[in-house]
Design a protein around this nucleic acid. Structure first.
Lengths: 318, 318
DNA sequence: CGATAGCATCGAAACGATTCGATCGAAACG
DNA sequence: CGTTTCGATCGAATCGTTTCGATGCTATCG
């Protein structure tokens, strides 16, 4: 930039102002600087230097598990999409941080922990030591972090009540690996069905759910309704039930969670609809606040049960 | 760091060496520096300053469309996962660049264009002016970029021959928006079926495919086989065909592309299996080479047709 | 017409590291 | 014992900006 300034016959500081526009520069001077830049093939201020000066990198990390697993669940995308949209508008980029701490050397302005079952991570000590703002989505409590969460417990309780109203008394649940949302949801379920049987934990994956519930039936499991922790799991249960000759919802009611689209399934799932986009926006807003040095309030978003065709009256034969 | 050096009674340069290990430092000195750092709550060298010195940000951008659409297709994930794995190992982070140029101010060491239908973008002039290495996946030709691609044309031709061998003569194809891969694949198809009818372009989305092929049938479209540009599209066609009382493959053969898992479909698709992970690794390797200042050769990866149960002999009644 | 604003410009000091070349002992060598 | 070598340490330059405070200079005001 010094060369450009020299070529334009102005000082370095003026050239800088011509590019950044942080202070008024006469039209004529700006044009002269820009022309000189063009002639010299100067592409504008070096972002690295700017970042050093500003003390900001313009990059926000988002901790996900392995990409292929984190995004397999269709609920992850609308959320991340909304995050990205808000951050983009603020000129911030989103850096993927798959499990691992290879990213210790990168300059991050903030980090989002979207807990896709990454309960065990713990915040990177390095980030905490550096004072990098942390925003935790659906996560356990970490000191100093801002929280964004949805009403897992209430959603699960709503579903449980719905099933109870339909006459179900023998309910089983397919769980996720132990995590904050899982614990909350199980608590919600147990408000209504204290003795609900746990089929076992499995990933939010169609085949995994089929295998898990199939194995449970094989070893004699019985229930008139299965409550799942994601719509993908629920779809797996529906498919496996049918494969075994059961009708949904006549013989078995199945409930999901998330409220994502499953167009390849011919029945609309009864589920708990999360405001995924709003969750993402709230997360991004929290990030922006924290970066700006403000305190950001924790956010708890409401959920809404949606009754679909996958749940129905309990079969009277039980 | 100056404070730490002072506290440890060494010079700034020595303190720097103690942290980076770029030159030998006596064990005792290092311990003293680290101890001083701990006492002063210094979390290590500031990445922004390091980046400025090094002239590297450690961040690689990956241009995708909107996240929700880019990752909806299950083929995108294994690819990106592999990219991320290789880059992580090299200490580089992956920055998502959704469509738009808000990312102009970010310091990127290289940019990957994974052309998910983002044909129209053009490389950011800014990046080119800055001399940022570009790696284009399945893209059109841009001067100076390194290319990674798969044998779209050959894969499509293999599928076409397979159908021809099965006796099909009336073949239609569901396309993607015009793009390099789409053009290549259509060329492959036309090697065997020069007159194949185009049903129309649609996103690689289940519902979109159902609607597109459904509308085509509604307006009198006829074919014994439909060649699709992704497995998701193919699944949509299978579902829609069945909804209309056709049997797959007895009445209609359907072929996909990509070779991803569709466990919710009860028929294994005939498809063209792409080496997705290898594509990702090759891409990442190209990025690393280019960042290192080396020239990176273009890569063309082989594909393999996999015959599944979605294609069969042409019905004799046509 | 003199004092006061206000605008454009400039010089110089950060921002926080890395790294080149020089210095200084001590060990190794003949 | 004199000389070379090597490892540890240091000082200073550098990376490329942004921005604070100062300096003219020209309108504005009374």
């Amino acid at each position: 930039m010094a060369d450009v300034a020299a070529a334009a016959g102005v000082s370095l500081s003026t050239a800088s102002l011509a590019f950044s526009g942080n202070k008024p520069v006469s039209e004529e001077t700006r044009d002269r600087v820009l022309a000189a830049a063009g002639a010299l093939g100067y592409a504008g201020p070096n972002p690295l230097a700017r970042n050093l000066r500003r003390g900001r990198s313009g990059v926000v990390g988002v901790a996900v598990g392995r990409l292929s697993t984190a995004f397999r669940d269709p609920a992850a995308l609308p959320m991340l999409d909304a995050v990205s949209e808000v951050l983009d508008a603020a000129g911030l980029g989103l850096l993927l941080m798959p499990h691992g701490d290879e990213h210790a050397g990168l300059p991050l302005d903030a980090v989002i922990y979207d807990i896709c079952g990454c309960e065990t991570w713990g915040p990177y000590d390095d980030l905490v030591a550096r004072g990098v703002p942390l925003v935790v989505v659906e996560g356990p409590a970490w000191a100093g972090a801002t929280y964004v969460d949805v009403e897992h417990r209430r959603g699960a309780a709503d579903v449980a009540r719905h099933l109870h109203d339909l006459g179900h008394r023998r309910v089983a649940t397919l769980t996720l690996d132990s995590s904050h949302p899982q614990r909350e949801r199980e608590a919600g379920l147990r408000e209504v069905f204290p003795d609900a049987e746990v089929i076992g934990p499995c990933d939010s994956d169609l085949v995994a759910a089929q295998l898990a519930v199939g194995a449970w039936w094989d070893r004699g499991g019985e229930a008139t309704a299965v409550v799942c922790q994601s719509d993908v799991q629920a779809a797996g249960v529906v498919l496996e039930a049918r494969r075994r000759g059961m009708d949904v919802p006549a013989d078995l009611s199945v409930a999901g969670f998330d409220g994502v689209a499953t167009p390849w399934l011919d029945v609309e799932l009864t589920t708990v609809v999360q405001p995924l986009a709003e969750k993402g926006r709230a997360t991004a807003r929290a990030v922006l606040s924290r970066i700006a040095g403000e305190v950001a309030d924790d956010v708890l978003l409401p959920v809404r049960m949606r009754v679909g065709g996958s749940t129905g009256p309990a079969p009277s034969t039980v």
